[in-house]
Design a binder for these strands. Structure first.
Length: 719
DNA sequence: GTGCGACGATTTTAG
DNA sequence: ATCGTCGCAC
């Protein structure tokens, strides 16, 4: 068989990776070096040249999008659908394994997945039930506590704590949360992984089975794996299976959510792989690459990698310092307008920023200039409130004992069942070991509720019952349609929200019916004996869908630096490059965090193919206050020779010429040398707030950096 | 039980 | 500024 097409358009390093004969492989793949291509060709190579059965291949990614893309590309390359091939996310694969072995890991086969919002609500419920102070134990923080322990593989019993300590109470909440999940057959995202790891760890027969099955395991974005994911990889690899690991330590930007870059080094230690570096970049100009290389060079402890390209030098990086954030937005959009005027497409342009709040100004100007745009971020389809409401009804039809679903919609739409009534139901359920649904039925029968509440609760139960009956033999789409109609969610939202908002919700609910109509149950789910409904519910949790209902074909892309990872654009703007914003203030204090910010900057820069703008503003509104700040340290890390500064003479438009208000602080500008009676000499580093609230940050020569209230600081300007 | 005004937190986010 | 949660008045 002629397999040259698998190797023809690969460079040496890529070819070496694709055809590696023995042992494990670590592919350090720089930005834009063709790593997906290498993964896809590797899979095809194994199947076509080594006649490895697709059944014995496992390819793991982090996002559904990446998994989908890989599946599509493998299929096209092999010109067939590789049946039996497992390509999926860590969570998707674990979900599949748990469905097949639900009983063995102590889960009912109707187990449901909690998404993060469900989990948050449940954690809050538990804290309230324990009558703990939500100020002392904020649900968000406890949720983080639970997840990070699970991601380290720890059950409540394995967490060290002193008796009666704060930590002890956190552990107690974790334990009760877990008990609740067990009782109700609920599994959060981290639990999907943890249960699977426990299954493989504690059941030698199962471990042997899957170790025999997956002779080749390929993992993408390895630098993003957490402790649990690495444990899973090791369990599946066993002694003899071959690992093909692709990653880039310089693009590790998710340390804050549990990712362990060290896993790359651990992998090295544990498996002694052959290391192949993909350093030839096919995306950016030489200028852009060199700048990115020089920035990332400021980090220590890198595995070492230097991107290069055969491409041309390209344009210099353009640096623009605006007076304020408004002017920055004007400038950016004016440059995008130039690009479009010169024949470029809006979708070639991406504005990247550190935090979502920054999108607003860009949106305003884009709207005014009538340039189509799309903002990434915000809620995705299956995370929207109305969709989650409808899904809760579906879950109740599927399983009337689903307490989280019950709590969500017992009074949505409002039917006169308040917190008191729900509390009584909860209490009864707990006392009798029942689900909330059972408890409600019993309470009504026993007259255990006030007449009004009882009537309302009965109406709710009848609605669910009636939906169950009406949809017994109905298709999924018919069921969803019945839920949307009979729940009267549309009217409920119409009555309490502005018309446009309510209309959008109505449209989303209609879209949900369409989604149900076009839903095809995955073959494996059918094999695992799942009902179509069960598949649909799982899928909704595992794959929350797109951020925006309508996909604009050709529009300017606005997104955070994090969500830009993996993407590329001819024209890129890195906006808001200011100390305190990027690197973010919260990251400046810790060195590890700062290195991660720098990697984020590296990721941002390497998104650009042709033209890169770096912009910052002297002042911007943050949380309703005007703040002044210096350009980001990352700007100074780009060699001057690669940069063209634009500030002098630029005017975005006549109306905004001259920029905004200047700092009013009695000549105390950024960089001004000052003297303080107690702290001595220093330099102004930052200014924030106005009038009596104004504060000033001064870096003192001997006393270090201090924040002072300007009104009391009595700073003396040194000539 | 429901609806409005005060209060406080506010980086990044896939599954 | 803005959003979500909480407490109090209807």
């Amino acid at each position: 068989m002629d397999v040259s097409h698998l190797l023809d358009d690969l460079n040496d390093a890529q070819r070496q990776a694709v055809t590696a004969e023995d042992g494990h492989l670590l592919v350090l793949a720089g930005a834009g070096s063709g790593k997906t291509r290498v993964l896809v060709h590797r899979i095809a190579w194994l199947i076509q040249v080594h006649h490895v059965s697709p059944m014995s291949l496992l390819a793991v990614t982090f996002t559904n999008k990446a998994a989908g893309e890989m599946r599509g590309r493998v299929g096209r390359l092999l010109n067939l659908r590789p049946d039996g091939l497992w390509i999926g996310t860590f969570h998707g694969i674990c979900h599949r394994l748990l469905r097949m072995h639900a009983a063995e890991v102590g889960l009912p086969d109707t187990f449901q997945i909690l998404d993060s919002e469900d989990q948050y609500r449940l954690v809050r419920r538990v804290i309230r039930d324990m009558e703990l102070d939500e100020g002392e134990h904020p649900p968000r923080q406890v949720q983080g506590f639970i997840n990070s322990h699970k991601e380290e593989g720890r059950r409540p019993k394995q967490i060290e704590h002193f008796d009666r300590s704060f930590q002890a109470r956190q552990v107690e909440i974790y334990q009760r949360y877990q008990d609740y999940c067990e009782r109700s057959g609920l599994v959060d995202f981290a639990e999907l992984l943890l249960r699977t790891v426990e299954l493989l760890r504690d059941r030698p027969d199962r471990r042997a089975h899957y170790q025999d099955r997956f002779g080749h395991i390929l993992i993408d974005e390895f630098q993003d794996t957490n402790t649990l994911q690495y444990a899973l990889v090791r369990l599946l690899a066993g002694e003899k299976n071959r690992l093909f690991v692709v990653g880039d330590d310089d693009q590790s930007i998710y340390g804050w959510r549990g990712a362990r870059v060290e896993n790359v080094a651990h992998f090295n230690r544990d498996f002694q792989p052959e290391i192949i570096r993909l350093e030839q970049n096919y995306r950016s100009t030489r200028t852009i690459l060199e700048a990115a290389n020089r920035v990332i060079d400021h980090n220590d402890d890198r595995m070492g990698k230097n991107l290069w390209t055969e491409g041309e030098q390209g344009e210099p990086i353009r640096l623009f310092g605006a007076y304020n954030a408004e002017e920055e937005a004007e400038f950016v959009i004016a440059r995008i307008q130039d690009w479009i005027n010169q024949g470029g497409r809006p979708s070639d342009a991406a504005v990247l920023y550190r935090s979502n709040a920054q999108s607003r100004l860009f949106e305003q100007v884009l709207l005014r200039e009538d340039i189509p745009y799309r903002v990434y971020g915000g809620l995705r389809f299956f995370e929207r409130a109305e969709i989650k409401d409808a899904m809760a009804y579906l879950r109740l039809i599927h399983n009337p004992h689903d307490d989280t679903a019950f709590e969500r919609v017992i009074n949505v739409p409002a039917r006169g069942i308040g917190e008191q009534t729900v509390a009584r139901i909860r209490e009864h359920a707990r006392a009798h070991g029942q689900s909330l649904g059972q408890a409600t039925t019993e309470l009504i029968a026993q007259g255990g509720l006030p007449p009004r509440a009882a009537r309302s609760a009965a109406v709710f139960l009848q609605l669910i019952e009636q939906l169950v009956k009406a949809t017994e033999s109905a298709s999924l789409a018919e069921t969803v349609s019945a839920v949307v109609r009979q729940s009267e969610l549309v009217a409920w939202y119409q009555g309490r929200e502005p018309a446009d908002r309510a209309e959008a919700r109505e449209e989303n609910l209609a879209e949900l019916v369409r989604a149900a109509d076009s839903f095809h149950q995955p073959f494996e789910d059918e094999q695992a004996g799942l009902s179509v409904m069960a598949s649909f519910l799982s899928q909704a949790a595992l794959e929350a869908g797109e951020h925006q209902a309508e996909r604009w074909e050709d529009c300017v892309q606005l997104m955070t630096l994090h969500s830009a990872k993996g993407l590329e654009f001819p024209l890129v703007f890195l906006a808001g490059m200011e100390e305190g914003l990027f690197p973010h203030q919260k990251s400046i204090e810790e060195p590890g965090r700062l290195a991660e910010e720098r990697r984020l900057c590296y990721v941002g820069m390497t998104r650009a193919m042709q033209r890169l703008y770096v912009t910052h503003a002297e002042s911007r509104q943050t949380y309703g206050q005007t703040n002044f700040s210096r350009p980001s340290r990352f700007i100074a890390e780009i060699p001057d020779s690669l940069v063209e500064s634009i500030r002098p003479g630029f005017r975005a438009s006549p109306a905004t010429a001259g920029g905004g208000p200047r700092p009013e602080s009695g000549g105390l500008r950024l960089g001004a040398p000052v003297r303080h009676a107690k702290f001595g000499f220093g330099t102004v580093v930052s200014l924030e707030g106005q009038g009596p609230n104004a504060r000033i940050q001064v870096n003192f020569e001997s006393a270090g950096s201090k924040w002072l209230v300007l009104a009391y600081a009595n700073l003396e300007l040194v000539a």
